[in-house]
Design a protein around this nucleic acid. Sequence first.
DNA 1: TCTTGAAGCTATAGTTGCTAGAGTCATTAG
DNA 2: CTAATGACTCTAGCAACTATAGCTTCAAGA
Lengths: 147, 147
Amino acid sequence: MLTIGKLGEAAGVKVPTIRYYEQIGLLPEPERSAGNQRLYGAKALDRLAFIRHARDLGFPLEAIRDLLSLSDRPDQSCAAADIIATEQLAAVKARIARLTALKAELERMITQCAQGTIADCRVIEVLSDHALCADDHRAQTGSGAAT
Amino acid sequence: MLTIGKLGEAAGVKVPTIRYYEQIGLLPEPERSAGNQRLYGAKALDRLAFIRHARDLGFPLEAIRDLLSLSDRPDQSCAAADIIATEQLAAVKARIARLTALKAELERMITQCAQGTIADCRVIEVLSDHALCADDHRAQTGSGAAT
DNA sequence: TCTTGAAGCTATAGTTGCTAGAGTCATTAG
DNA sequence: CTAATGACTCTAGCAACTATAGCTTCAAGA
Protein backbone atom coordinates (compact mmCIF):
# COMPACT_ATOMS: atom_id res chain seq x y z
CA MET A 1 0.00 0.00 0.00
CA LEU A 2 1.29 3.38 -1.05
CA THR A 3 0.70 6.74 0.51
CA ILE A 4 -0.24 9.51 -1.83
CA GLY A 5 3.30 10.84 -1.85
CA LYS A 6 4.79 7.50 -2.88
CA LEU A 7 2.12 7.02 -5.49
CA GLY A 8 2.84 10.41 -6.96
CA GLU A 9 6.52 9.69 -7.04
CA ALA A 10 5.98 6.34 -8.70
CA ALA A 11 3.70 7.76 -11.39
CA GLY A 12 5.42 11.10 -11.85
CA VAL A 13 2.37 13.06 -10.77
CA LYS A 14 2.26 15.71 -8.09
CA VAL A 15 0.28 15.04 -4.96
CA PRO A 16 -2.31 17.83 -5.35
CA THR A 17 -2.89 16.64 -8.89
CA ILE A 18 -3.79 13.18 -7.63
CA ARG A 19 -6.26 14.64 -5.20
CA TYR A 20 -7.63 16.75 -8.04
CA TYR A 21 -8.10 13.68 -10.22
CA GLU A 22 -9.95 12.02 -7.40
CA GLN A 23 -12.11 15.08 -6.94
CA ILE A 24 -13.21 15.10 -10.55
CA GLY A 25 -13.84 11.36 -10.49
CA LEU A 26 -10.96 10.26 -12.67
CA LEU A 27 -9.49 8.21 -9.85
CA PRO A 28 -11.70 6.27 -7.45
CA GLU A 29 -11.69 7.15 -3.78
CA PRO A 30 -9.01 4.99 -2.19
CA GLU A 31 -8.97 3.27 1.16
CA ARG A 32 -7.93 5.31 4.14
CA SER A 33 -5.56 4.50 6.96
CA ALA A 34 -6.62 4.69 10.59
CA GLY A 35 -5.39 8.27 10.54
CA ASN A 36 -7.47 9.15 7.45
CA GLN A 37 -4.63 9.07 4.95
CA ARG A 38 -5.17 7.75 1.46
CA LEU A 39 -3.74 4.31 0.71
CA TYR A 40 -3.29 3.07 -2.85
CA GLY A 41 -2.69 -0.33 -4.37
CA ALA A 42 -1.15 -1.43 -7.64
CA LYS A 43 -4.33 -0.88 -9.61
CA ALA A 44 -4.42 2.77 -8.66
CA LEU A 45 -0.83 3.13 -9.77
CA ASP A 46 -1.62 1.60 -13.16
CA ARG A 47 -4.58 3.86 -13.61
CA LEU A 48 -2.66 6.96 -12.64
CA ALA A 49 0.22 6.03 -14.93
CA PHE A 50 -2.27 5.62 -17.74
CA ILE A 51 -3.68 9.07 -17.08
CA ARG A 52 -0.26 10.60 -16.87
CA HIS A 53 0.80 9.05 -20.11
CA ALA A 54 -2.31 10.12 -21.94
CA ARG A 55 -1.88 13.66 -20.60
CA ASP A 56 1.69 13.60 -21.86
CA LEU A 57 0.29 12.78 -25.25
CA GLY A 58 -1.99 15.76 -24.98
CA PHE A 59 -5.30 14.03 -24.48
CA PRO A 60 -7.77 16.21 -22.60
CA LEU A 61 -9.09 14.81 -19.34
CA GLU A 62 -12.51 14.15 -20.79
CA ALA A 63 -11.00 11.99 -23.51
CA ILE A 64 -8.97 10.18 -20.88
CA ARG A 65 -12.13 9.54 -18.94
CA ASP A 66 -13.55 7.83 -22.02
CA LEU A 67 -10.38 5.87 -22.67
CA LEU A 68 -10.32 4.65 -19.10
CA SER A 69 -13.86 3.42 -19.22
CA LEU A 70 -13.04 1.66 -22.49
CA SER A 71 -10.05 -0.04 -20.97
CA ASP A 72 -12.32 -1.37 -18.27
CA ARG A 73 -14.28 -3.31 -20.90
CA PRO A 74 -11.66 -5.46 -22.66
CA ASP A 75 -14.18 -7.40 -24.71
CA GLN A 76 -15.62 -4.51 -26.62
CA SER A 77 -14.41 -3.29 -29.96
CA CYS A 78 -11.57 -0.87 -29.85
CA ALA A 79 -13.09 1.31 -32.54
CA ALA A 80 -14.07 3.93 -29.99
CA ALA A 81 -10.53 4.15 -28.66
CA ASP A 82 -9.30 4.47 -32.19
CA ILE A 83 -11.66 7.35 -32.83
CA ILE A 84 -10.52 9.20 -29.74
CA ALA A 85 -6.88 8.78 -30.66
CA THR A 86 -7.54 9.82 -34.24
CA GLU A 87 -9.32 12.94 -33.08
CA GLN A 88 -6.43 13.75 -30.84
CA LEU A 89 -4.06 13.28 -33.74
CA ALA A 90 -6.15 15.64 -35.85
CA ALA A 91 -6.10 18.23 -33.08
CA VAL A 92 -2.34 17.95 -32.77
CA LYS A 93 -1.89 18.28 -36.51
CA ALA A 94 -4.09 21.36 -36.59
CA ARG A 95 -2.14 22.96 -33.82
CA ILE A 96 1.14 22.24 -35.54
CA ALA A 97 -0.14 23.78 -38.75
CA ARG A 98 -1.25 26.90 -37.01
CA LEU A 99 1.92 27.28 -35.00
CA THR A 100 4.02 26.77 -38.10
CA ALA A 101 2.25 29.67 -39.79
CA LEU A 102 2.81 31.82 -36.72
CA LYS A 103 6.46 30.87 -36.66
CA ALA A 104 6.94 32.00 -40.26
CA GLU A 105 5.25 35.30 -39.57
CA LEU A 106 7.26 35.93 -36.44
CA GLU A 107 10.50 35.12 -38.22
CA ARG A 108 9.66 37.45 -41.06
CA MET A 109 8.81 40.19 -38.63
CA ILE A 110 11.97 39.77 -36.60
CA THR A 111 14.42 39.50 -39.45
CA GLN A 112 13.00 42.64 -41.01
CA CYS A 113 13.52 44.63 -37.85
CA ALA A 114 16.42 47.01 -38.36
CA GLN A 115 16.95 47.55 -34.67
CA GLY A 116 16.28 51.26 -34.84
CA THR A 117 13.64 53.13 -32.91
CA ILE A 118 10.10 52.11 -32.20
CA ALA A 119 8.94 54.55 -34.85
CA ASP A 120 10.28 52.34 -37.61
CA CYS A 121 10.26 49.03 -35.82
CA ARG A 122 8.99 46.34 -38.08
CA VAL A 123 7.65 44.34 -35.18
CA ILE A 124 5.37 47.10 -33.97
CA GLU A 125 4.47 48.04 -37.50
CA VAL A 126 3.40 44.59 -38.54
CA LEU A 127 1.36 44.18 -35.42
CA SER A 128 -0.34 47.46 -36.16
CA ASP A 129 -1.28 46.51 -39.67
CA HIS A 130 -2.47 43.09 -40.56
CA ALA A 131 -2.12 43.90 -44.24
CA LEU A 132 1.64 43.61 -43.84
CA CYS A 133 1.27 39.95 -43.04
CA ALA A 134 2.02 37.24 -45.50
CA ASP A 135 -0.92 35.06 -44.71
CA ASP A 136 -3.96 34.72 -42.58
CA HIS A 137 -3.15 33.47 -39.15
CA ARG A 138 -6.61 33.96 -37.80
CA ALA A 139 -8.92 31.13 -37.17
CA GLN A 140 -8.44 28.58 -34.54
CA THR A 141 -10.85 25.82 -33.74
CA GLY A 142 -8.96 24.30 -30.92
CA SER A 143 -10.38 21.99 -28.36
CA GLY A 144 -7.21 20.12 -27.60
CA ALA A 145 -4.82 20.41 -24.72
CA ALA A 146 -1.22 19.39 -25.33
CA THR A 147 0.62 22.24 -23.79
CA MET B 1 -17.97 57.22 -32.79
CA LEU B 2 -18.54 53.51 -32.59
CA THR B 3 -20.63 51.50 -30.19
CA ILE B 4 -19.00 48.47 -28.69
CA GLY B 5 -20.75 46.19 -31.14
CA LYS B 6 -19.50 48.08 -34.17
CA LEU B 7 -16.04 48.26 -32.71
CA GLY B 8 -15.99 44.54 -32.13
CA GLU B 9 -17.18 43.90 -35.64
CA ALA B 10 -14.56 46.20 -37.11
CA ALA B 11 -11.72 44.63 -35.16
CA GLY B 12 -12.95 41.05 -35.21
CA VAL B 13 -13.23 40.85 -31.44
CA LYS B 14 -16.27 39.76 -29.48
CA VAL B 15 -18.03 42.30 -27.34
CA PRO B 16 -17.46 40.62 -23.96
CA THR B 17 -13.79 40.34 -24.84
CA ILE B 18 -13.57 44.08 -25.36
CA ARG B 19 -15.11 44.69 -21.97
CA TYR B 20 -12.70 42.17 -20.52
CA TYR B 21 -9.74 43.99 -22.06
CA GLU B 22 -11.00 47.20 -20.55
CA GLN B 23 -11.39 45.54 -17.19
CA ILE B 24 -7.79 44.34 -17.12
CA GLY B 25 -6.55 47.72 -18.27
CA LEU B 26 -5.49 46.76 -21.77
CA LEU B 27 -7.94 49.21 -23.28
CA PRO B 28 -8.61 52.60 -21.69
CA GLU B 29 -12.06 53.41 -20.40
CA PRO B 30 -13.92 55.02 -23.28
CA GLU B 31 -16.35 57.89 -23.30
CA ARG B 32 -19.95 57.12 -22.53
CA SER B 33 -23.13 58.21 -24.24
CA ALA B 34 -25.91 59.92 -22.37
CA GLY B 35 -27.39 56.46 -21.82
CA ASN B 36 -24.13 55.10 -20.38
CA GLN B 37 -23.06 53.19 -23.45
CA ARG B 38 -19.42 53.00 -24.45
CA LEU B 39 -18.35 55.11 -27.41
CA TYR B 40 -15.08 54.49 -29.23
CA GLY B 41 -13.01 56.51 -31.67
CA ALA B 42 -10.45 55.55 -34.28
CA LYS B 43 -7.62 55.30 -31.78
CA ALA B 44 -9.46 52.67 -29.81
CA LEU B 45 -10.01 50.71 -32.99
CA ASP B 46 -6.31 50.82 -33.83
CA ARG B 47 -5.38 49.69 -30.38
CA LEU B 48 -7.88 46.86 -30.39
CA ALA B 49 -6.76 45.72 -33.83
CA PHE B 50 -3.19 45.68 -32.57
CA ILE B 51 -4.19 43.53 -29.63
CA ARG B 52 -6.19 41.20 -31.82
CA HIS B 53 -3.35 40.80 -34.22
CA ALA B 54 -0.82 40.12 -31.52
CA ARG B 55 -3.18 37.57 -29.96
CA ASP B 56 -3.51 35.91 -33.35
CA LEU B 57 0.25 35.61 -33.36
CA GLY B 58 0.07 33.95 -29.97
CA PHE B 59 1.48 36.70 -27.80
CA PRO B 60 0.19 36.48 -24.23
CA LEU B 61 -1.71 39.47 -22.95
CA GLU B 62 1.12 40.52 -20.68
CA ALA B 63 3.50 40.69 -23.62
CA ILE B 64 0.92 42.68 -25.53
CA ARG B 65 0.68 45.08 -22.65
CA ASP B 66 4.42 45.66 -22.96
CA LEU B 67 4.27 45.99 -26.74
CA LEU B 68 1.50 48.55 -26.47
CA SER B 69 3.39 50.68 -24.02
CA LEU B 70 6.40 50.49 -26.32
CA SER B 71 4.38 51.60 -29.29
CA ASP B 72 3.34 54.63 -27.29
CA ARG B 73 7.00 55.74 -27.14
CA PRO B 74 8.12 55.92 -30.78
CA ASP B 75 11.48 57.49 -29.96
CA GLN B 76 12.84 54.67 -27.91
CA SER B 77 14.93 51.81 -29.19
CA CYS B 78 12.98 48.89 -30.49
CA ALA B 79 15.28 46.38 -28.87
CA ALA B 80 12.71 45.61 -26.22
CA ALA B 81 10.08 44.85 -28.85
CA ASP B 82 12.54 42.64 -30.60
CA ILE B 83 13.21 40.70 -27.44
CA ILE B 84 9.52 40.12 -26.83
CA ALA B 85 9.01 38.90 -30.37
CA THR B 86 12.05 36.67 -30.20
CA GLU B 87 10.85 35.11 -26.99
CA GLN B 88 7.50 34.47 -28.56
CA LEU B 89 9.20 32.85 -31.52
CA ALA B 90 11.16 30.60 -29.18
CA ALA B 91 7.99 29.61 -27.37
CA VAL B 92 6.28 28.80 -30.65
CA LYS B 93 9.23 26.72 -31.82
CA ALA B 94 9.26 24.78 -28.58
CA ARG B 95 5.58 24.03 -28.86
CA ILE B 96 5.97 22.86 -32.43
CA ALA B 97 8.79 20.54 -31.45
CA ARG B 98 6.77 19.00 -28.67
CA LEU B 99 3.64 18.62 -30.76
CA THR B 100 5.61 17.01 -33.55
CA ALA B 101 6.87 14.37 -31.16
CA LEU B 102 3.33 13.75 -29.95
CA LYS B 103 2.10 13.48 -33.50
CA ALA B 104 4.65 10.79 -34.30
CA GLU B 105 3.70 8.81 -31.24
CA LEU B 106 -0.01 9.07 -31.95
CA GLU B 107 0.47 7.99 -35.53
CA ARG B 108 2.53 5.01 -34.48
CA MET B 109 -0.11 4.07 -31.95
CA ILE B 110 -2.99 4.38 -34.39
CA THR B 111 -1.45 2.60 -37.33
CA GLN B 112 -0.54 -0.33 -35.11
CA CYS B 113 -4.09 -0.74 -33.94
CA ALA B 114 -5.57 -3.83 -35.55
CA GLN B 115 -9.17 -2.79 -34.88
CA GLY B 116 -9.93 -5.78 -32.74
CA THR B 117 -11.12 -5.72 -29.17
CA ILE B 118 -9.98 -3.46 -26.39
CA ALA B 119 -8.05 -6.36 -24.93
CA ASP B 120 -5.48 -6.17 -27.70
CA CYS B 121 -5.96 -2.56 -28.70
CA ARG B 122 -2.65 -0.93 -29.33
CA VAL B 123 -3.96 2.46 -28.33
CA ILE B 124 -4.95 1.34 -24.86
CA GLU B 125 -1.89 -0.79 -24.54
CA VAL B 126 0.55 1.96 -25.38
CA LEU B 127 -1.16 4.33 -23.02
CA SER B 128 -0.89 1.71 -20.31
CA ASP B 129 2.78 1.22 -20.77
CA HIS B 130 5.14 4.04 -21.43
CA ALA B 131 7.90 1.59 -22.27
CA LEU B 132 6.13 0.90 -25.57
CA CYS B 133 6.79 4.47 -26.65
CA ALA B 134 9.48 5.43 -29.07
CA ASP B 135 10.66 8.53 -27.29
CA ASP B 136 10.15 10.67 -24.27
CA HIS B 137 7.25 13.00 -24.65
CA ARG B 138 7.35 14.23 -21.12
CA ALA B 139 8.67 17.58 -20.23
CA GLN B 140 7.03 20.80 -21.09
CA THR B 141 8.23 24.19 -20.01
CA GLY B 142 5.52 26.22 -21.58
CA SER B 143 4.65 29.76 -20.66
CA GLY B 144 3.28 30.78 -24.02
CA ALA B 145 -0.24 31.15 -25.26
CA ALA B 146 -0.77 30.52 -28.97
CA THR B 147 -3.91 28.46 -28.87
C1' DT C 1 -46.39 57.90 -30.36
C1' DC C 2 -46.06 53.34 -29.05
C1' DT C 3 -43.95 49.10 -29.27
C1' DT C 4 -40.94 45.60 -30.11
C1' DG C 5 -36.59 43.54 -30.71
C1' DA C 6 -31.76 44.11 -30.83
C1' DA C 7 -28.00 45.70 -28.50
C1' DG C 8 -26.00 47.57 -24.37
C1' DC C 9 -25.18 47.54 -19.21
C1' DT C 10 -23.27 45.23 -14.62
C1' DA C 11 -21.99 41.42 -11.98
C1' DT C 12 -21.04 36.77 -11.22
C1' DA C 13 -19.69 32.19 -12.29
C1' DG C 14 -17.84 28.69 -15.37
C1' DT C 15 -14.17 26.80 -18.48
C1' DT C 16 -9.25 23.57 -18.39
C1' DG C 17 -5.84 21.50 -15.69
C1' DC C 18 -3.89 22.19 -12.46
C1' DT C 19 -0.95 25.08 -8.52
C1' DA C 20 -0.37 27.57 -4.19
C1' DG C 21 -1.57 28.87 0.16
C1' DA C 22 -3.48 28.47 5.12
C1' DG C 23 -4.12 25.98 9.07
C1' DT C 24 -4.50 21.38 11.14
C1' DC C 25 -3.42 16.37 11.99
C1' DA C 26 -0.57 11.85 11.33
C1' DT C 27 3.56 9.41 11.00
C1' DT C 28 8.20 8.46 11.61
C1' DA C 29 13.34 9.06 12.65
C1' DG C 30 16.44 10.09 16.11
C1' DC D 1 9.61 12.62 23.29
C1' DT D 2 10.22 15.75 20.11
C1' DA D 3 10.87 17.56 15.69
C1' DA D 4 10.53 17.18 10.94
C1' DT D 5 8.21 15.63 7.29
C1' DG D 6 4.12 14.37 5.06
C1' DA D 7 -0.87 14.26 4.73
C1' DC D 8 -5.43 16.39 5.50
C1' DT D 9 -9.30 19.94 3.97
C1' DC D 10 -10.64 24.10 1.99
C1' DT D 11 -10.21 28.13 -0.66
C1' DA D 12 -8.38 30.98 -4.12
C1' DG D 13 -5.63 31.83 -8.23
C1' DC D 14 -3.60 31.30 -13.15
C1' DA D 15 -4.84 32.59 -18.75
C1' DA D 16 -8.02 34.33 -21.57
C1' DC D 17 -11.90 34.39 -22.15
C1' DT D 18 -17.25 32.68 -22.37
C1' DA D 19 -21.84 32.34 -20.57
C1' DT D 20 -25.65 33.54 -17.80
C1' DA D 21 -29.02 36.54 -15.41
C1' DG D 22 -31.53 40.44 -15.05
C1' DC D 23 -31.68 44.91 -16.19
C1' DT D 24 -31.71 49.47 -19.41
C1' DT D 25 -31.22 51.94 -23.78
C1' DC D 26 -31.68 52.55 -28.59
C1' DA D 27 -33.43 52.37 -33.43
C1' DA D 28 -37.00 51.38 -36.50
C1' DG D 29 -41.66 50.08 -37.91
C1' DA D 30 -46.90 50.49 -37.43
